[in-house]
Design a protein around this nucleic acid. Sequence first.
RNA 1: GCCCCAAUAGCUCAGUGGUAGAGCGCAGUCUUGGUAAGACUGAGGUCCCGGGAUCGAUUCCCGGUUGGGGCUCCA
Length: 668
Amino acid sequence: MSEHISITLNGAPTTLEAGTTGTALFADSASTVVMRVDGELWDLARQIPADAEVQPVSISEPEGLDVLRHSTAHVMAQAVQQLFPDAKLGIGPYITDGFYFDFDVESPFTPDDLKKIEKAMQKIINQNQTFEREVVDLQEATRQMADEPYKLELLGHGQGADSMAEGAGVEVGGDVITVYHNVDRTGERVWSDLCRGPHLPNAKLITNAFAVMRAAGAYWRGQESNPQLQRLYGTAWPTKDDLKAYKERLAEAERRDHRRLGKELDLFSFPEEVGSGLSVWHPKGAVVRGEMEQHARRRHLEAGYSYVYTPHISKSDLFATSGHLGTYAEDMWPPIHMDEERDEQGQVTKQGQDYYLKPMNCPMHILIYAERGRSYRELPMRLAENGTVYRNERSGTLHGLTRVRGFTQDDAHLFVREDQLEEEITKVVDFVLSLLRDFGLEDFELELSLRDEQQEKWIGSEQYWESATQALRNVAVASGLKYTEIPGEAAFYGPKIDLKITDAIGRKWQLSTVQVDPNLPERFDLEYTAADGSRQRPIMIHRALFGSIERFAAILVEHYAGAFPAWLAPVQVRGIPVAEPFNDYLAEVIEKLKRRGVRAELEDGTDRFPKKIRTASKEKIPFVLIAGGDDAESDAVSFRFRDGSQENQVPVDEAVERIVRTIEDREV
RNA sequence: GCCCCAAUAGCUCAGUGGUAGAGCGCAGUCUUGGUAAGACUGAGGUCCCGGGAUCGAUUCCCGGUUGGGGCUCCA
């Protein structure tokens, strides 16, 4: 005699016997790993309540993958504590493409340990362990976690428990406290963790499509003042093929890595003698960079920007006025102390001065504005500079060209009247997008950093915030791009819009930033004379487009995997004669191209023909021109393109035109 | 800055308590006839730097430099 309840299953009303679990309901769907009950993810083993709205969640959909990875993290932690009984548990959430788990252990994990852990995990998985959910009260949770100091802290015991670390939400954070037990075939609880869940019904769903990827240090709760734990990163996928595809994706990213390609293609380097995070650009890299700069420069001039040049170094007063020495000092290089004189006793007879390398260009541009009185007729005034700045980045943060200690910003500062703000912001964002598209980037996302409700944090008038925010929002909407608003992320003086791009293999990069700033004009007491003769204060817009030219070049290297479009390619054309007798014939063709401004060269070395083809191919040269008997007879050349395709006996003049046109049109 | 790992020829990397190797690249010679590696010969090394224990260190230990993976931070 059983009671029935009605529920909504996948949107359709249906009835069930009371007490039915998800396991029973979805018994014939092997890929279902959890269920969504009234919008929340539940373990299948839970009983479905009356009137619930229920949907199955498959292992291969995003939320199912999260669960798979979270459960794999539990299995890993179980394996670690099996092998290292003294290891204390930190947190173990799922992340993009995988998961991690933090441990407090005596000594860090070795590569050998990782293999052992993986093995132990496989053993556990093969045992068909299940995950059991237990709802407990604080007291019971405390009792069960008595040996886990970090878990106790999450439960609110100990210090610092009030500030929740990111990721801690997977441990606690629901309405109730739950502990998950790993239960073996005999029904015995073999491992437990404080955890919100949900989990897979059975560990065997992990199959063998998982891997422990690497070990790294990580601070407890992400705070430097906290103890450093050992973090193990892992990944898990529904099938072995998915895991293979993931590893292939990583391998592809490695092949495209700008540090690797930068060396292989002889673009740039970081000489140890120069110093950490400081790049030098070799001839080929300088071509790519130079083309980028040249093109951007032309576009800027067309858009009404004026280029300026400013020094790399300045007396401290400038950065005191700008406020950088107050708020940004930690990121600045230590000062150079100049001009101090002392007498024989070592007493200072002439006071010295501190000079700083500039961490930003804005103060310099402001000085240009402030050099003389300005009229409202001069605004907007758009000052642009490829300005090299130096920042004292912490050594551990440096990374290839993307995070360095000296880099060149394609920086611009726009001085505008308040009534011009909205229009100018619109123009700037449109300009940024249009220029980035010239470089073959298409996949953009915008991020609006706005103020929040805490009024006292923000300076400036209501009207100013209103119009600046509205301008940014309008332009975001009009762009048709995906955008998110982040309240509270604005600088204290103004909102900003950041632009992120996704490259050819799906990685996201933060590039351009447009920031509204009435604060620096205030600090430097900037003015212009308005139409009515009154003195007014301009508003500044900071804008970097590539962000850092070096970093942007690196992004392009990775985006194109080193195979630059012809207009950016260090070598655009290589002529390869089929055999030596055709050297002179081909040399003439190359000469014609050079006269048209094409970066073309003749390969007249002693390698044999196929070897020369291979070499050109490895250098990713866009056009290989080949000439042999058939070509010479008909006053033609043959194309070999980067993809291996070819086109034979193209008349020389046509070939030249085609190459020149491809470069001019910035085609691939 | 903190934790871990690494550093050997121009590059990628083997290797060793008794001062060192491969492939590619480079140079030379002989070659060169149609789309990803012709053959041979050769040059090239302060085994990152400094200190220590050792009869002896590129190898072991300590410190530093640079790079890498993370944490944190960010263009």
